[in-house]
Simulated scan of single mutants.
Amino acid sequence: MQIIFGAGALGQAVMRELLRKGKQVLMVNRSSIPALPEEVEWVQGDARDVHFCNQVCKDADVIYNCIGIPYHKWAQEWPAIQRGIIEGAASSQAKLIYADNLYGYGAHEGPLHENLPYRPVGTKTSVRAKLSQMVLEAHRQGNIRAAIGRGSDFYGPGVRSAVLGERVFQAALLGKPVELIGDIDQPHTHIYIDDFACGLVSLSEKDEALGQIWHIPAAETVTTRQLVELIFHETGCSPKYRIARGPLLTVMGWFSPTMREFKELTYMFHRPFIVDHSKFENAFGIRMTPHQEAVRRTMDWYRKNQK
Rank of each mutant, 00 (worst) to 15 (best):
G158Y: 11
S126E: 14
A129F: 01
S132N: 14
K124Y: 02
K124L: 03
D153K: 03
I148N: 00
P117E: 06
V163Q: 09
S161H: 10
V163I: 15
G142A: 09
G156L: 00
S161D: 14
V163F: 09
E137C: 11
S126L: 12
F154M: 13
P157G: 04
F169D: 15
A146Q: 03
M134N: 09
I148E: 00
S132D: 12
Y155W: 05
A162V: 09
L164I: 15
A138K: 01
L164K: 12
G165Y: 05
Q133P: 03
L131G: 13
I144A: 07
K130M: 11
Q133N: 10
R128W: 00
L164S: 14
A129C: 05
V168C: 12
I144C: 11
G142D: 08
Q141S: 04
V121S: 11
L136A: 01
Q141N: 07
G156Q: 00
D153H: 03
Y118L: 12
D153A: 07
Q141F: 01
N143Y: 04
A138N: 04
P117M: 08
P117N: 03
T123F: 02
I144S: 09
P120R: 02
H139A: 00
P120F: 01
R167M: 15
P120D: 04
E166P: 10
E137H: 14
R119S: 05
M134V: 05
L164R: 11
V159Q: 12
G151N: 07
S161W: 02
L131A: 14
L164Y: 12
V121P: 04
L164T: 15
F169H: 15
V168D: 05
A147Y: 02
K130W: 01
E166F: 02
R150Q: 10
R160V: 14
G151R: 00
R150N: 07
T123R: 06
V135N: 00
G122M: 07
G151H: 02
R160N: 13
K124P: 02
G165D: 14
F169Y: 13
V163L: 13
R145Y: 10
E137I: 12
R150P: 05
H139N: 05
Q133R: 13
N143T: 08
R160F: 03
G156E: 01
G156S: 03
H139L: 02
V163S: 09
H139V: 00
S132E: 15
P117V: 05
I144V: 15
I148D: 00
R160A: 12
K130G: 06
Y118E: 11
R128C: 01
V127K: 02
R160T: 13
S132K: 14
Q133Y: 06
H139T: 01
G151C: 09
V135C: 00
P157E: 08
Q133K: 13
G149C: 08
Q141G: 03
G156I: 00
A138H: 01
